[in-house]
Every structure is written in C-alpha cells, then in structure tokens.
Design a binder for these strands. Sequence first.
DNA 1: CGCTCGAATATGTATAGTCATATTTGCGAA
DNA 2: TTCGCAAATATGACTATACATATTCGAGCG
Lengths: 247, 247
Amino acid sequence: MTDARVQEIPGLGGAPLHQRIRADIEGRIRSGAWPPGHRVPFETELMGQYGCARMTVSKAMAALVEAGLIVRRKRAGSFVARPRVHAPVLNIPDIQAEIEARGEAYAFRLLARAVREADGAAPGELELAAGGGLLALDGVHDADGRPFALERRLVSLKAAPDIEAADFSQETPGAWLLEHVAWTEAESRISAINADAEVARLLALDEGAACLVVDRRTWREGRGVTRVRQVFPGEAYDLVARFGPRV
Amino acid sequence: MTDARVQEIPGLGGAPLHQRIRADIEGRIRSGAWPPGHRVPFETELMGQYGCARMTVSKAMAALVEAGLIVRRKRAGSFVARPRVHAPVLNIPDIQAEIEARGEAYAFRLLARAVREADGAAPGELELAAGGGLLALDGVHDADGRPFALERRLVSLKAAPDIEAADFSQETPGAWLLEHVAWTEAESRISAINADAEVARLLALDEGAACLVVDRRTWREGRGVTRVRQVFPGEAYDLVARFGPRV
DNA sequence: CGCTCGAATATGTATAGTCATATTTGCGAA
DNA sequence: TTCGCAAATATGACTATACATATTCGAGCG
C-alpha cells in the first residue's frame, strides 16, 4: 500500500526523514557514543525504528558513507569508520576579495608581461607551452598602496588563448582564469623561504625575512593551464584550513 | 512492469547506471562543453535517453549536487554550477608516517611535560583548561637522528583524561589523540616565521632561517581538545594541497 | 580437525508509482 | 501597463517490490 501521507509529520521537525536519520546517526558517531568499529543497526532495524521504507534508510546511509563516517559491507553490515588522518579544506582565497573584505583598497601592478616559448628554466614549462607557447606574467598585489603579495605566473596559451587580450589593470590574472577557464584541478605546495634581495625590495621587507610561498599548478582535463608562485610576507599573512572529517 | 533484469547490460561497461549517467554529465561539465549556467537536460529527458526510471537519474543528479558541479531548482531545472574559489584538500600528514614513508628512522623526543592550569599566556588556554586543567607537551620529531619538526602542544585534560598515563617515547601525542579522541574538527593556520635562537638550536638551523608554522586547534563537539604549534624548516618541507572541485 | 561448498543474509541497484513543494509563467483584473 | 493570483511544471521525498552480489556462517565431508 502506498502511504506517502506520512511524508511530513507536523510538529516533529520539518526536515526530510532521510536527513533526520542521517543526523541522528552522525550525532551518535561524533559524540563518541558509537566508537570506530561499532556496528550501526541493520537497515531493517532502522526501517522499523523510523517506520519507513528501506530506500529511505539507505539514502541516509549512503550520505554517511559519502561523508566518510561509516563503511558498509555486504552481508556484514555497516560500521563506524576509523577517522582519517587530517585532510582539512584549505581556503586559498582570491587575493583581491580577501583584501577588499578587510576594507582596504586593492590594486594589481603588472611588472612584466611576455609571450614566449618554453626555455626549460622552470620545471613544467615544457608541459605548459606544448602546442602554443606561454604567457609569463609578473606582478604585485597591493593593499592600500603597500605590497601584499608577489606573483609570478605562466599560462598555457593553448589552454587559454584569449588571455593575450586581457587587461590586468582591472582584473588579476587569477580572477581572469577563474572566470574563463572553468572547473580545473589544482595542486598547491606551501613552503617558507627567506626573502632574497629582489623579493625583499618588491614586498618592502628586510632581506632574509620569512615569507610564505604558495606554488600552484592547475590542469584542465589533464593538460596544464597555469603555474603560479605567490610569495606573502610570512608574519602578516596566514592560510587557514578548516576541517570537518570528510573526503 | 518491474523489469529489473536490465540492471546489468553485459558488454556495455559494468558500472552501475547511475554512476555512468553521473560520469557522462560530469565529463561534459569538466570539458567545458556545458559552461557554468548551462541547463542540464530535464530528468524526464535523461530518463528517456538512458531508458531508466526517474529515481536513477535523480540519484546521479544528487551526487553531482553533492560534488558541487550542479545546482537544482524546482520548477526551473538543473544548471551547471559556477566554479567555487579554490578550496583544495590539504594533507596535513601524520609526521611519523611521513618520515617512515621516506624510509628514514623516526623518533619523538619529549623535551618537557607539565600538568597545569591555564596561565593565560597563550590565547585559547582558558577554553582548553576549562574544568580539568591541561597538559603541556614540548617535543621534537627526528628523522634519521636529525630534527625534522618542533612541536608545542596543549591538551585539555577534560577532553582526554587518559593522556596523563600515555608514554610518548613510542607514540607521538598527535597519534595518541587520533587514536583515543575520534572525530574531531580542526582549524589550521599556516604561516612563516624566522627562526629565533631557541628554534634555531632545536632544529639545527641558522638563526633567522625561514620556517613553516602550522598552528592547529582541535575541537570535539564544540569543546577544545588540543592546540598545537608545529615548526618545520621552511625549505626542507612543504605541505601539499590537492584539489578537485568539491565541498 | 580442518577445509570446502552451499545456504543465509545484509547491502546495492533499479523500477513504477504517489504525493509534496517551490517556482515560473501567463492570464486576468485594477 | 502592471500587479497579483492561479495553473503548470520540474524537482524532492517516499513507498513497495524485485533481483543482484558479496560475505559470512555453518553443515558435512575427507
């Protein structure tokens, strides 16, 4: 008998049932009441407890698997997963948005711009330049007229031919790429260096000052799009990674 | 008519149908064929194209929403989402595992250990100490006998009372906590500093050398568990964040 | 006593239908 | 012409059912 009238039980929390089931189980896991390895009740049991169909329970369980909170094994049942080693979500922000969020005036100063072939100086140049050459951009991000970050970028002209016509006095190369080359994958390496003479001059720091360096490479469909090295004054800036167990 | 025999169409890719639908759509989005804002075919259309029930299409779509690739609006339809600003998944690895993965000998040297109340020196101490005092641990991670990272940690004794009895010659405080206090949330701040005299001595660096600093705070159910500051030699170490659009 | 094989079982995939809900669209009235 | 309301429509939630598949468990055999 199809009885979809039970869909909404008024006065008992308006959320969809599968979400409530999910939340109930998640709560017990996060509180520690159900430790890693603990068996989650069988779908048939939960189905009885909540008075719903198995598909509804299953949907909740699937979401918990997706969130990495449980693992399911056929015939055996579902179990609370072992927490994974830290994998926080790092926010590498749009520098312009970040500065403006602080209420400071943002500007990007283009220092150098060149279209050329790979010269093999930096690793990965060959990959980027394949079949179209590359655009090299050097610039400084300013906050309230003071240097905030230094950026050296290579862009594959094959992956983004339109970028040759772009005007970077209004828009950063990063923002342009985000807008025009969608859905990329990226890898960032974060390290620290002592400012050499050039970096110190451009960022208005003392030579030897610690700087935070983000080296990012970006691909689309497996082909290199851009490679950028951003240098921040170490003590004035920090990256924040937030983490709720996931992926 | 229930016709579940179609479940597996041999010789046409063994993956479940909803996964194939998902992959097809994802491919078109990632390739750029369907730009942000483009409307995804209606569920009824896809249902016809793939010759399946609406629930199956819906399952594929739900997964795409979860992955952040599309947004769905009632009455209006489903649309390719605008790519989000970078939110890569950062791997803050278990230091011990990392060193051993390189084939080097790992050791943790405990330098100082003290049970005390909050003295308000570091921000957030009061929160951690609430209702049970805290354990302060200083130590050095060694790789092949050479210092690899410096660690200064505070642990809430209320959140982890058993840690008073732990032996940190075999296991790092981080590993102990991971094993005994499950499913935490965390926030990491990453910055760069110049080594002061003490850091330089402990890490065997020159004074002033650039170091990468990870400041991590961890909660469970909203209550502070631990706060740790790890200092790495800047040029010898880097964090890697990988990114496939998500979260 | 140990090992293999078959039965039991819990999850996984899929269907066809029903009712709910949020928008959008277009029609009609002010 | 514009504003407001009603109808149309696409997604969202859920049920009941059917069959697939991977494991585990135990019975029976060597």
